[in-house]
Design a protein around this nucleic acid. Structure first.
Lengths: 355, 355
DNA sequence: TCATGGTACTTTATCGATTAAGTTCACATG
DNA sequence: CATGTGAACTTAATCGATAAAGTACCATGA
C-alpha cells in the first residue's frame, strides 16, 4: 500500500506485462493507442512518477550526464571569468546534446573527495585544469570512463586533451615587452600546485610545481629573453599562490619592493594582471608609465579594465565547447584525440615603452 | 572474457561472496584487513573500476546529486551575474554536503526537454526563477522528488519556496525617486513570460504575464505612486523582452522617444538598468542629470558601473545557499518550508533630483 | 560445561527498469 | 487451404550493486 508505484504496479493493475507498460513510455509505437492511453491513465491515477532514472541508467548503460571537475573549489568557480567562459562553451555543447552537466564538488579531504566524485552517475568526465596530483582526478581516472582533459594535466593517450600553446603564448607576451624596450622583466604566476605557495621562486620550488602550464609559460617567457640575447636567469619570478586578484595585488607589492627596477610584469592570467595593476598603484607606480603589465586569457574584464589590458587571448568558450564535443564523441565510442587551439596577442594600453 | 568486471567477478576469482567484496569498498571494518587487501589487489589486477554509481544509486535510493533548472538557456546562465551569484551559494552548500550539482539542459523543444530532465538521476530539484508554464518544470513537478523553488513560480505547499518581498522592494525603489522629486516615472521590465515580448505594456499584455515577480514589482511601483497621492495609471510601463542589457538599451531608446518627459526610470534588474543607461545616452540624455535610473538586485557590476547604480539589493548568494540547504533538508525528510529573504535599498549615483 | 557475544563471512532478497526472443492471432496471398 | 507476415503482447534474462538476516567459529567468564 505504502509501496512505491513502479511499472509492475501498473502492469498488475491492468493485467498486462511490465514490458508493455515500459513501452508505453519509451516506444509508443510498440503498442496499441488505446491500451497506451489506458496505461497512462492508470499511471496517473496511481501517482506513478515516470521511469526511474537510476534503474533505467543501470539497465541501458546511459546516464545522460557528463561530469565536470575543476581545479578550484566549486564555490569559486563562478567568480572566475575564465572558468565561466569555459562553462558557457560546455553548456552550449551539452544543451545541443540534451545531456546534463554534473558539477563535481571538490575535495574537502582526500577520502570525501573520491566518495562524492565516484558516487555520482555520469557517462564521462571533463577535467578543467586540475593539478596532476589531485586525488579527485585520480579517482576519476580510476573510474575508466571516457575522459577529456583541458589544459592540465597531460595524461598522454589515456584521455583526450584540449590545450593551447602556452609556451608560445608566453613567449609572445615577453617579446612584446622586449620590443617596447623593456629589459628588466618579472613574472608573476598564480597557482603552481595544489597548495599554492607565494613569494619569490627559486629552482627548488620551481621543480616542485605540479601545474604544467606554469612551467610551460615560464619556459616561454625565458625563450623570449634567450632569443633576444638576454640571460633568462635575470628574469624575476614570483608566485601569488592563487589565480586571484587579491593575492596578486599583495604579491606585486612585495615583488616591486624586492625588485624595484622591474619595468615590465608578465602575469599568468588577466586576473593576476588586474591584481598586479592594483598592487603597482599601491607602490605609487602608474600603469603603463612606470610599469607595463601583460595578462593572459583575455577575459571580458581585460578590455574594460583601467587601463585596458594587453594580453594573450585564448578562445575559452570554444575550448569548453570543443572539450564537451570531444567527450560526447568519446562516449559514443570515438578514440581519444588531442587538439591545440590558437592564441592571439592583444595589445591594449597596459603596456608602453619604459620611461 | 571481454565481460565487464563487477563485484561478482572479483568474488568468484577469490572464492568469497559478492557482499564481502562490496564491504571491502563500503565498510572496511566489516572484514579482515588481510582479506580486504587481497580483494583490493585482485580488483586492481582485474581492472575493476569501483562500484557502479547507477547500480549503487538504484539499490540505496541515493543518487548523490541535486538537479538545477534555470529559466535561461543553460548557455546564458554563466553570463548573468545574478545567476552566477546564486550558483555560488548553491555550490557552497553542495560542496559542504558533498553532493553533485546537476545543471539541467533547458528545453530545445517540449519533448526533448522532459526527456533530458527526467532521464538524469538526482535526489531532488532546485528551480531558479522559471516561468510557471515551463514544460521542463512540469516534468520536474511530475517526478515528485523533493523540490525547492526560488522566486518563481509559487507552487504553494507542494514545494519549498525561497523568495524576497519583491513588491516592497519595488515600492522602495519608486519611493526613492518620488522623494527626490520625480513625478513622471517609467518602468522597464525584462522578461514577463516564457516568450518575451517587447514594447509598451497595456492591460491585456499585463494580464498574460506568467512571471510572478514582474507582476509583483509592478504592483510595488504602483503602490508607491498611490501612497504619494499620484495616479498609478500614469506610470509608463515597457518591457524589454529579456533580462538583457542589449534588449534594455533598445527598449529604452524607444521608451524615451515615446515618453520624452520621463525623468525617472525604474528597472527590473541591474542588467536592465545598465542597458537603460546606455540607451539614455544614445538619446542624448545624461544619467542622472537628465534621467534617474534605479536597478534591482545589486549585482557586482552595479557598484562599478558608470555611474554607480542606485538599486535594491537582494542577498543572492545567500539565496542560493539557503535554497540548496532547504533542498538537502527536504531530501533528508524535512517538510517543505517558505523563506523570505531581506532586501535593502542602496543609493548610489544613478539617481538625482530632476532638473 | 555452557550460555554469551563478537568477528568474519555467506545467503537471500531485492532496487526498477530494458532488451531480445518468443507467442498469439488476425489477415492477406498464391 | 496452407503459408507467410506483421502487429501486439508476454517471457525470461539481465544491468551491478547493497541490506538484512543467518551461520560458523572462537574466546570469555561464571
Amino acid at each position: 500500500m505504502g509501496d512505491r508505484v513502479t511499472l509492475q504496479t501498473i502492469a498488475d493493475e491492468l493485467g498486462v506485462s511490465r514490458t508493455t507498460v515500459s513501452n508505453a513510455y519509451n516506444r509508443p509505437d510498440a503498442l496499441g493507442a488505446e491500451l497506451r492511453a489506458r496505461i497512462l491513465a492508470v499511471a496517473d491515477r496511481l501517482g506513478y512518477r515516470g521511469p526511474d532514472a537510476a534503474a533505467r541508467g543501470l539497465r541501458t548503460g546511459h546516464r545522460g550526464a557528463i561530469g565536470l571537475l575543476f581545479t578550484e573549489d566549486l564555490r569559486f568557480v563562478f567568480e572566475d571569468a575564465d572558468t565561466t567562459g569555459f562553462l558557457q562553451g560546455v553548456a552550449d555543447a551539452s544543451v545541443q546534446a540534451g545531456t546534463g552537466l554534473m558539477l563535481l564538488p571538490s575535495p574537502p579531504d582526500l577520502e570525501g573527495a573520491s566518495t562524492a566524485v565516484t558516487s555520482v552517475a555520469v557517462d564521462g568526465h571533463l577535467v578543467f585544469s586540475v593539478a596532476a596530483d589531485d586525488p579527485a582526478l585520480e579517482a576519476i581516472v580510476a573510474m575508466g570512463l571516457p575522459l577529456v582533459i583541458v589544459d592540465e594535466p597531460d595524461l598522454g593517450a589515456r584521455a583526450s586533451f584540449v590545450h593551447i600553446d602556452d609556451r608560445a603564448g608566453a613567449k609572445a607576451a615577453a617579446e612584446h615587452l622586449l620590443a617596447l624596450g623593456h629589459r628588466r622583466l618579472a613574472v608573476l604566476l598564480g597557482r603552481t600546485g595544489r597548495d599554492g605557495g607565494s613569494g619569490p621562486v627559486d629552482a627548488a620550488r620551481e621543480a616542485a610545481w605540479t601545474i604544467r602550464i606554469a612551467t610551460e609559460r615560464l619556459a616561454g617567457y625565458r625563450d623570449a629573453l634567450t632569443a633576444a640575447g638576454l640571460d633568462p636567469d635575470e628574469l624575476v619570478v614570483w608566485e601569488a599562490g592563487a589565480n586571484d586578484p587579491d593575492r596578486a595585488r599583495q604579491a606585486t607589492t612585495e615583488l616591486l619592493a624586492a625588485s624595484p627596477d622591474v619595468t615590465g610584469l608578465l602575469c599568468f592570467s588577466d586576473r593576476v594582471a588586474i591584481g598586479a595593476c592594483q598592487g603597482a598603484r599601491l607602490t605609487g607606480r602608474r600603469v603603463p608609465e612606470d610599469l607595463s603589465v601583460v595578462g593572459f586569457d583575455d577575459i571580458p574584464r581585460a578590455a574594460t579594465w583601467d587601463p585596458p589590458l594587453t594580453t594573450i587571448r585564448q578562445p575559452i568558450v570554444d575550448k569548453g565547447r570543443l572539450a564537451a564535443r570531444l567527450l560526447l564523441a568519446a562516449i559514443d565510442g570515438a578514440a581519444p584525440s588531442r587538439v591545440q587551439l590558437p592564441i592571439e596577442p592583444i595589445v591594449r594600453s597596459s603596456t608602453a615603452p619604459p620611461t
